[in-house]
Design a protein around this nucleic acid. Structure first.
Lengths: 129, 129
DNA sequence: GCGGTTCTACTAATTTCTTCGTTTTTAGTC
DNA sequence: GACTAAAAACGAAGAAATTAGTAGAACCGC
């Protein structure tokens, strides 16, 4: 499996929109993106990103209808794994625990969240020396 | 306090070198970087990065001697916080717990590491409803 | 069928990042 | 003081990413 390229900042924004709702048209995604942007993006700009991303294999296009629709070709989970792994290499010398401690240091968690993490930790260390 | 810009990939590589040893000269950092690079970087390339980063305020320059020496103007911790926060926003809707679960899912931790995380979790949830 | 609308494709300008060659400055050596 | 070796500054090319204008095709209502 040839790994897909790491999405750029803009590509990621589009993937986020697609993960929320897909398939989606260029116009739909454009509107979603422009809700949180001051200089709004032109339609053709967003279209261009879709063309590039189709080329790269990050999204798939359905051109059965005149108005093409797009879907993500990578899952949120895969992408998160990829990007966390990347950050890990670049900034934490691969130390997962350091990253986790760093992340935990930034905010307080709810009890439920903490419990969930505890659970995973317990699973991981069970039976280890 | 005007936040400093997010370092680019190359700038980050230089910061990593400086965090390991500073102050350091251009040549020293160049040699460090080139240990793990196949097309090695030219001296002037590395120098250019230092000039840009000085401009941006990411490093400080000591030009007392003819051979200038540089030190990081941002700490590893600050940078890590910045970049983790960035990833959090961009990919995890700000959910620290989701990021942590994702990170923990990638590798098994040593017992010591797990214990350290447990400790922090306990501190954080103490006295919470 | 025709005019307006909306879509995709094409092309290209702009910006940011990376890279390095050339020139200038500096400090030491004879 | 001129010569050389090393460093810094400058300028600019190349590459990647972002942005958008324009042209041509497809559809819709009349």
């Amino acid at each position: 499996m040839s790994d897909l390229p790491k999405p750029t900042e803009s590509e990621l924004a589009i993937l986020r929109a697609l993960w929320k709702k897909h398939p989606a048209t260029v116009r739909e995604v454009m509107e979603t993106l422009n809700e949180e942007r001051d200089p709004p993006l032109a339609y053709t700009t967003v279209l261009k990103f879709f063309q590039i991303m189709t080329e790269k294999g990050l999204v798939t296009r359905d051109d059965a209808d005149r108005t093409h629709s797009y879907s993500p070709a990578v899952s949120p989970d895969t992408t998160k794994k990829q990007m966390v792994g990347d950050l890990l290499d670049r900034l934490f010398q691969g130390s997962v625990s350091e990253l986790v401690l760093q992340a935990l240091g930034t905010t307080k968690l709810s009890k439920a969240e903490a419990a969930e993490i505890q659970k995973l930790l317990n699973q991981q260390t069970r039976g280890k020396s």
